[in-house]
Every structure is written in structure tokens, then in C-alpha cells.
Nucleic acid binder design. Structure first.
Length: 879
RNA sequence: GCCUGGGUGGCGGAAUUGGUAGACGCAAGGGACUUAAAAUCCCUUGAGGCUGAGUCCUCGUACGAGUUCGAUUCUCGUCCCAGGCACCA
């Protein structure tokens, strides 16, 4: 045994190396070492710079799927990379453990949601460990644990105190047969997914969070989230949907009632010829009484309650309305406007009433045509006869006001403000801002969620549960009911209680909270997950938060991320945190897709049910020819899913990780390919063999780090290639998280190492090879942590310490070459190329370009008009 | 429908402050090794063309226009695909 120093100043020991790459042996070995050493456990350390890396935590459905694998692999590479860069990295994992699937599974399999959930958590934790992810498992949390939701309930009480939580009314999908509320996804073509009966809209009293109080701030900060993809902030801006306009008051004819409308187009007021109310509008009832139309109106409102609210928003949804027998007065023209109820008017937006200007709004135009209502043009482009406007469709462009009293002739944009001012002066209306964003309805009439900590008392009304009585524990001894109805209502031991105020008999609130509530603060909880005197330890949160890099699916671009931003603001205003934005940088990864396969008899087929002859799939059940469908997001319903466990058994975690990263950049969708996985496996074998081949020789030498001039050309070339690779990989990871190009750079280096004809008897050359080998291991360490640990050990380094080794630095002097390859274009078409020294002046370059034989064929006999020289790149000759 | 992305070889993808289109990998074909196969290693591979098979020519980044010496990249229009649309998470 001999000892040789290397550049890392570690003592090297000769290590034997297996002939074959065997992930089944290597991967459990290192996972055990990491676990035993608690290698990824972290604490606050003021002396070190922190890096909080977070991936969206999973719903414990039972098995991890490829979407999780991709998400967590991307995160793990960044976490491991940042550790190698010296950061104190917080990388936690936990479970978004409340939610509907647990209840559905419980009903279907006669289990308990809690038992089902915890069994799933155990199974998934096992799978994540097999993937080799570097989590601090001591921080694991599950949101269904009372120790977690206790603090959510505490926050709810604080929000209630401040008026940030309140009770209001809203509509839900209701199935009369099942006596239950349905999620949108449980409504199939207007019918209940369980019993097939029609679903109607039912008004319920529910709890809300006043997110609209923060609409303006959330919107404003969209511009400041520079570490977020622009598409996400754009989607959030659109979701908040700020519009500036006016609120206008219309007098109902022959009544004291008035109708307030919000409009973004006060400039079109002279063209408002009728009024549309939402079917739920409070005035519908009173205005239609005594008109003889009551029955019709009631029937229409009833029929509208069968239309889903989301459908009603679609622009191509059939517009329907009904005259309710009342008129209101256009305050500017004094003309009578018939009042309609219409399905496209939504109670949730603006005031629930729309002043309809058919000439200048397409929806109103369609409606007016359908019901024969007046169309009055009030905006007209210059030099166009008014008669030509709004004949076949609404005119929605800008123009000059016509038929608009004292405002006629004004530019319509300018008129918006002038007319609004006129409203204010004459008390007809006022400037107004409206948001599309609605308050966050958090009530769920479900069992498997965090109970809302309030008590309803006959005499005291709604009373908050006193803080000392928290948590309100979700009872586990319940019978889940067929049809999905929450059993809490009928669980006497839970519901029946005493009023904290008067001591009399009272009922507990049986609604539970939306699961988005749990996921709106879990990232803070991770900072001190066992803290038991508050939501979190403020000093731990002060050290770790905000999250430096958050990673998750783009499907969460709006709701989860917006709710989390809102919650952080609420916490800030309570003085619990000192920042507004929880996530400094955001990476939204694309979906994992695969082609679908369908059998004419058995429908969609799982991959394991499919047999291939060449490209032609056959149904494994009936042997008929199956058809290959579109490439779609992997989903159980389409059965185009790959079980990560099967891949782990066959190839090991490193190969799966490598494939996920290599096949596409993170933000794009990733198409599944069995051959691609095999390619990844082959590459790892290739590295293994390469190092095995040089193992004996390079163990005896130091990694080369001397001057370039000491090397022969072959060695210089490899040394330079190695540093170029370090540079490329560092830039690709650091700046863009483009692991696919980072990996391809390493592949190029490995190819060069195979091809090189280094004189390995020369110690410097052997040292260059050792340097290349070590660089490959270090550069790939975050991506394929198991094989690289093994190879690192085989090179004689301290076992298990690769994950805390330093990321390699590139040497500037090794990157630069003293010649440049220039290309020559004639009129933009490539005609030749040449090498020239880097310091050549422009005239020399031009001369050389013009001298090129092929170039001369295209320039001879023509006038050279211009020669464009782009430094270090090309020459374009214009003839 | 609205909002947001995306469309490049047989396939996944690479190249964007406008400057060599197709890196790297997969698949396919050929060769070496082997009694043979697997594995491995090497070579070829966008399409088409050719009195000089070349350091050659033409076409080519969804489609159609435009700006430019030069466009996968910028602008306008069209088509197609995907994600979100408020109780799935």
C-alpha cells in the first residue's frame, strides 16, 4: 500500500475496483452510509451562507410517479450542487396529506383515510430513499398530523380576529341524491360522478379568506419577482385581473331601487340599451314581483342553477336571458332600458349587473340580436359612416364618440375619464377598480381536512375556539358514508360541545379547510418542524426563509403559488415574518408524457399489458392489434404510466436520474423513452469501464495542475477540454439549470478521454488523465450520486465524502485558444472557413476571406459592396 | 372561449443581446472482435442534386408575409399541440 497526495490534499489509498458497474450493490451501500451519517441534516449556522431548496411536497397517493421523480431529481441535483459550492443547504421533504383521494379510497376499500394515508407515506418515503435524494429526513412533516394543523387553526383564529377570515355565501356543486358537495372534477357533463344524477348550484354559508385585500400588492409584486418565469407572473396578473373603470348607478323605473354596475367602458354609456343581472342577483326577485312574469323568472333562475359557473364563463357558451318585467333609466340618455337576467352575468364579478352596450361588446351584441334589443352606435372610427358600424358584429376598437350628447366628437379613450368625472360631479357614479380575483373560499364539506376551529352557539352566534383548546382534533372514530358525505355532521362526539362564551350547548363547525391552506405555509414549518409553541421558530425562519429556489409543476402556477404569497403577507402583517415573498426563485418543470396505447376491446392499456412486434403494439389481454395514440401527460386514466419502482429494479436510481435530466431541459415537457433510459445506463457503464481501464495507472499520480507549457499537445488538448467542460457544466447548472446540456458536455469529455492517445508513461500526461477522471466524477456527482461516490472511493479518496467535496474550478488559461475558426459568407450564404490567429487585425481577416478558393467562385466578376466582419466569428461579403 | 407556453432530422433535443442549423443521446445501416450471439469499440446518417462526388450546389427550423448584409432567433398574420380556468393536488 502506498500513499500519494492529490490536489485535494486527501490521503489516497489503493482501492480495488469491481469489473462491472452494479447499481444493485452500490446504491443501497451509499444510501446506508448517508443515512447513518445523517449527511444531509442541517442546522442554522450564521457563519455560513444558507440556501433553501424546496420542491413542492407530494400528495401521498401511495406511489411516487414519474412527475415526482423528475421534480425531485431536479431539486436534488441543485441541492447537491449548492452543497459542493459551500452553501448550508436546507432540503426538506414532507407530505401534503389531507385531501379527497383518501376519502374516496376509504369508501372504495373500506379503510380509514388516516390508515390509508400513513401507509402511503411509508411506502413513498421508501421509494424516495431508493432514489438517493439528499433530504434532511429529520424535518419530515405530514399536514394531517394534529401538531401541524394545530398551528393552522391558530392562524385561522388570528385571521378571524383581524377580519381576514369571514363567513359569506357562495355556490357549490350539489348532488341531491348523495347529499354532498362535489368538486368540479367530480361533475361529469353536469352529472354526479357517483350516482349520475344532475348536479345543481346550491348556495351555502362558507368561510373565506380576504385575499382580495392584497390584490393590489400581489399584483404589484408580480413585477418584482425577477426570479420567476415570466409566464407564471403573467398568469398571476391575469388571474388577479385588475380593471379600471367606473361604477354607475341606474334608477329602476317606478321604484326606489337602484342597480349599480361596474364597467370598464364608461365611454359607451350613451349606447347602453339594456341591463343584465346575474340570476342570483338580489334584485331579481323583488323587481319581477307583480309583473306577471314571476313563474317564468323563477323557472329560468332554477334552470340556470343547473349550469355550472365555469361553463357560464366560456365565451362560446350559449347566451341565454329573460326579461324580468322591469326597466331602468339610462342616466345620460334618459331612455328606458329593459332589465334581463342573463347567464353570462356573474354575481362574483363586479356588482353582478352588466350595463349592456350591444354596439361595442360582442357578447351584448349577440344577446341583443337574439332578443331583438336596440343597438345604438356611440363610437365610430374617423372617416367611417356611422351606418357601417356594428352591422354584423360589435365594434370594439377605439374611435370618436357619436350620439353622445355633450361628449360627441371626443376621442373615446379620453372620454372614459371625462365621463367618469361627470358621473362623480353629478353623483351618478364614481371611479372604480375591480378585480377578477375573488376571496378565497376555504370551506370544504369534507372529512379528511383540518377542522375549522369555530363553534356555533344559539345565543352567542359564531364563537372562536379558545386558543388553549387547540388543536380541534379531527376524530378518527367515524363511519365514512357512501356518496362521499362528510361524517363529521353526524359524529355526535365531535359536533356536540359547549359554547366557550356562555357554556350552553353548541355545535362545532363541521367544515374543514381547503388543502391549499396547509400548503400555503409548510415551507415556513420546515424551518423548525418540531416547534411546539407556535407555527414556527421565528429565528429559524429568519435564517432560512425565503426559499431560494422553489421547484414544482407548472400546473400550480396560479393557485398554490398565489395563496402562498398571500399567506406570507398575512404573516408579515402579524409581525411573524419580515418578508413578503416566500419564493425568491421559481422553476416550473414540465410534465412527463408518454404515448397512449388503446385496444379496440379493452380501451387504454398499461405498458405492461402491451406486447410489441416492432412498432406495432398488441393487446396483452386479447392479442388484437392496438393503436398508438397521442403523446400525453402520464396519467392513470390514460394508463400511459411508468412505475419508477420497475425502473429502479432494472437500472437503478442513477440511471433514472440521469435520464430525467438528460432527455429535456427542466421547464419543457419530457417524453418518456425506454431506449433513452437504456442510453443513460450505457453511459454510466461507459464511465465505469473508462475509469476501470486507467485505474491502476492514475492511482499512482497526482492530478495535474501545473503550467500548460509543461504538457505535450495531446495532453494539452485533453487538459483544455477538461477545463472547457468544467466551465460549460458550471454555467449550464448555475445560470439556467440546463442539465441536459451539462450532461452532454460531460459525454463529450468522456468521448475525448476514450479517443485520446495520451502517453500514460509520462507522469504529467497521466496526471492530466487523473484530472479528467476526477473532474468527470465531481461534475456528475450531483446527478448520479451513487456511482460517483463509488468511483471516488475507488480512486482512493475518503469514502462517503464526495457529497461534501468542492465543485471543481475551471482555469481561465486552459480555456482560451490562440486561434479562431472564422467562417466566410457571400450574401449571407456559407462559402468557406479558415483558421486565423486570435490577434489578427480586420484587414488581414478580410484578405484571408477573399482569398478563399470557394469564396472566389462567388465573388469573381462582381462588385464587392460591403464586407462585414464579426469578431472571432465570421466575415460576410456582400456583392 | 379566455389566459399562458410550445412547434427544429426517423426520435428526444442543441444552437437565440440576429452571425457555421442539427452538439449530445436514441434509432437505423456498415465494419471490427467472437465458433456464434450478446456486450463492447470504430465509421456513416436532414432531404434532394451533380460534365469535375466536393473544403460542391439547391432546399430545409409548423405555414404565409415582412425587417436585415444575414432570421430557428425580431415583427405581423394563419394552423396545430399542451397547461391553467377558482372544490384534484
Amino acid at each position: 500500500m502506498y500513499l500519494v497526495p492529490c490536489t485535494l490534499n486527501l490521503e489516497l489509498k489503493s482501492q480495488p475496483m469491481e469489473n462491472r458497474y452494479d447499481p444493485k450493490r452500490i446504491e443501497p451501500k451509499w444510501q446506508t452510509v448517508w443515512d447513518a451519517n445523517k449527511q444531509f441534516k442541517v442546522d442554522e449556522d450564521q457563519a455560513r451562507e444558507k440556501y433553501y431548496l424546496l420542491e413542492m411536497f407530494p400528495y401521498p397517493s401511495g406511489k411516487i410517479h414519474m412527475g415526482h421523480v423528475r421534480n425531485y431529481t431536479i431539486g436534488d441535483v441543485i441541492a447537491r450542487y449548492k452543497r459542493m459550492r459551500g452553501f448550508n443547504v436546507l432540503h426538506p421533504m414532507g407530505w401534503d396529506a389531507f385531501g379527497m383521494p383518501a376519502e374516496n379510497a376509504a369508501i372504495a376499500n373500506n379503510t380509514h383515510p388516516a390508515a390509508w394515508t400513513y401507509a402511503n407515506i411509508d411506502a413513498m418515503r421508501e421509494q424516495l430513499k431508493r432514489m438517493g435524494y439528499s433530504y434532511d429526513w429529520d424535518r419530515e412533516l405530514a399536514t394531517c398530523a394534529p401538531e401541524y394543523y394545530k398551528w393552522e387553526q391558530w392562524l385561522f383564529l388570528k385571521m378571524l380576529e383581524k377580519g381576514m377570515a369571514y363567513q359569506g355565501e357562495s355556490y357549490v356543486n350539489w348532488c341531491e341524491t348523495c347529499q354532498t358537495v362535489l368538486a368540479n372534477e367530480q361533475v361529469e357533463a353536469g352529472n354526479c360522478w357517483r350516482c349520475g344524477k344532475p348536479v345543481r348550484q346550491k348556495k351555502l354559508t362558507q368561510w373565506f379568506f380576504r385575499i382580495t385585500d392584497y390584490a393590489e400588492d400581489l399584483l404589484e409584486y408580480c413585477h418584482k419577482l425577477t426570479g420567476w418565469p415570466e409566464k407564471v407572473t403573467t398568469m398571476q396578473k391575469n388571474w388577479i385581473g385588475k380593471s379600471i373603470g367606473a361604477e354607475i348607478r341606474f334608477q329602476v323605473e317606478g321604484s326606489d331601487e337602484t342597480i349599480d354596475v361596474f364597467t370598464t367602458r364608461p365611454d359607451t354609456i350613451f349606447g347602453a340599451t339594456f341591463m343584465c343581472l346575474a340570476p342570483e342577483h338580489p334584485l331579481v326577485n323583488s323587481l319581477s314581483r307583480g309583473t306577471g312574469l314571476e313563474n317564468e323568472v323563477d323557472a329560468f333562475v332554477e334552470r340556470m342553477s343547473l349550469q355550472s359557473r365555469s361553463d357560464r364563463l366560456l365565451d362560446n357558451y350559449e347566451k341565454e336571458g329573460l326579461f324580468i318585467g322591469a326597466w331602468c333609466i339610462n342616466p345620460m340618455t334618459g331612455l328606458r332600458m329593459p332589465v334581463y337576467i342573463a347567464n353570462f352575468a356573474l354575481m362574483e364579478y363586479g356588482t353582478g349587473a352588466v350595463m349592456s352596450v350591444p354596439a361595442h361588446d360582442q357578447r351584448d351584441f349577440d344577446f341583443a340580436k337574439k332578443y331583438g334589443l336596440d343597438i345604438v352606435v356611440v363610437i365610430c372610427p374617423k372617416d367611417t359612416p356611422v351606418e357601417r358600424i356594428a352591422q354584423t358584429e360589435a365594434y370594439v376598437e377605439d374611435g370618436v364618440l357619436v350620439n353622445s350628447g355633450q361628449f360627441t366628437g371626443m376621442d373615446n379613450k379620453a372620454a372614459q375619464e371625462t365621463i367618469t368625472d361627470y358621473f362623480e360631479e353629478n353623483k351618478l357614479g364614481k371611479k372604480a377598480v375591480s378585480y377578477r380575483l375573488r376571496d378565497w373560499g376555504i370551506s370544504r364539506q369534507r372529512y379528511w381536512g383540518a377542522p375549522i376551529p369555530v363553534i356555533h352557539c344559539e345565543s352567542c352566534g359564531t364563537v372562536p375556539v379558545p386558543e388553549k383548546d387547540l388543536p380541534v382534533v379531527l376524530p378518527e372514530d367515524v363511519d365514512l358514508l357512501e356518496g362521499g358525505r362528510s361524517p363529521l355532521d353526524t359524529t355526535g362526539a365531535f359536533v356536540n360541545t359547549t359554547c366557550p362564551k356562555c357554556g350552553g350547548p353548541a355545535r362545532r363547525e363541521t367544515d374543514t379547510m381547503d388543502t391549499f391552506v396547509e400548503s400555503s405555509w409548510y415551507f415556513e414549518r420546515y424551518c423548525s418542524p418540531r416547534h411546539d409553541t407556535g407555527m414556527f421558530d421565528t429565528s429559524a425562519v429568519g435564517y432560512w426563509m425565503p426559499v431560494d429556489q422553489y421547484i414544482g409543476g407548472v400546473e400550480h402556477a396560479v393557485m398554490h403559488l398565489l395563496y402562498s404569497r398571500y399567506f406570507t403577507r398575512v404573516l408579515k402583517d402579524m409581525g411573524l415574518v419580515d418578508f413578503k415573498e416566500p419564493f425568491t426563485r421559481l422553476l416550473t418543470q414540465g410534465m412527463v408524457c408518454k404515448e397512449t396505447v388503446q385496444c379496440p376491446e379493452h380501451g387504454f392499456l398499461y405498458p405492461e399489458e402491451t406486447r410489441y412486434e416492432g412498432d406495432q403494439p398488441y393487446c396483452g389481454i386479447c392479442n388484437q392489434k392496438a393503436t398508438v395514440g397521442r403523446v400525453e401527460k402520464m396519467s392513470k386514466s390514460k394508463k400511459n404510466v411508468i412505475d419508477p419502482n420497475v425502473l429502479l429494479d432494472e437500472y437503478g436510481a442513477d440511471t433514472v436520474r440521469l435520464f430525467c435530466l438528460f432527455a429535456a431541459p427542466p421547464e419543457r415537457s419530457l417524453e418518456w423513452s425506454e431506449q433513452g433510459v437504456e442510453g443513460g445506463f450505457r453511459f454510466l457503464n461507459r464511465i465505469w469501464r473508462l475509469i476501470k481501464d486507467w485505474h491502476e495507472t492514475i492511482q499512482k499520480v497526482k492530478s495535474f495542475d501545473g503550467g500548460m507549457n509543461e504538457l505535450d499537445d495531446t495532453a494539452k488538448e485533453l487538459f483544455s477540454k477538461t477545463h472547457q467542460t468544467i466551465h460549460r457544466v458550471t454555467v449550464d447548472i448555475e445560470e439556467r439549470f440546463h442539465f441536459n446540456t451539462a450532461i452532454s458536455a460531460v459525454m463529450e469529455l468522456v468521448n475525448a478521454m476514450y479517443a485520446t492517445e495520451l502517453d500514460m508513461k509520462n507522469p504529467d500526461s497521466a496526471g492530466v488523465m487523473r484530472h479528467a477522471v476526477q473532474s468527470v466524477i465531481l461534475l456528475l456527482a450531483p446527478v448520479v450520486p451513487h456511482i460517483t461516490e463509488e468511483l471516488w472511493e475507488a480512486l482512493g479518496n475518503e469514502p462517503g465524502k464526495l457529497s461534501s467535496a468542492w465543485w471543481p474550478e475551471y482555469r481561465e488559461d486552459a480555456l482560451v485558444s490562440d486561434t479562431r475558426l472564422m467562417v466566410v459568407q457571400v450574401n449571407g450564404k456559407l462559402r468557406g472557413r479558415f483558421e486565423i490567429s486570435a490577434d489578427a487585425d480586420e484587414d488581414t481577416i478580410k484578405e484571408k476571406a477573399l482569398a478563399d478558393e470557394n469564396v472566389r467562385r462567388f465573388t469573381e466578376g462582381r462588385d464587392i459592396k460591403k464586407i462585414i466582419v464579426v469578431k472571432d466569428k465570421l466575415v460576410n461579403i456582400v456583392v
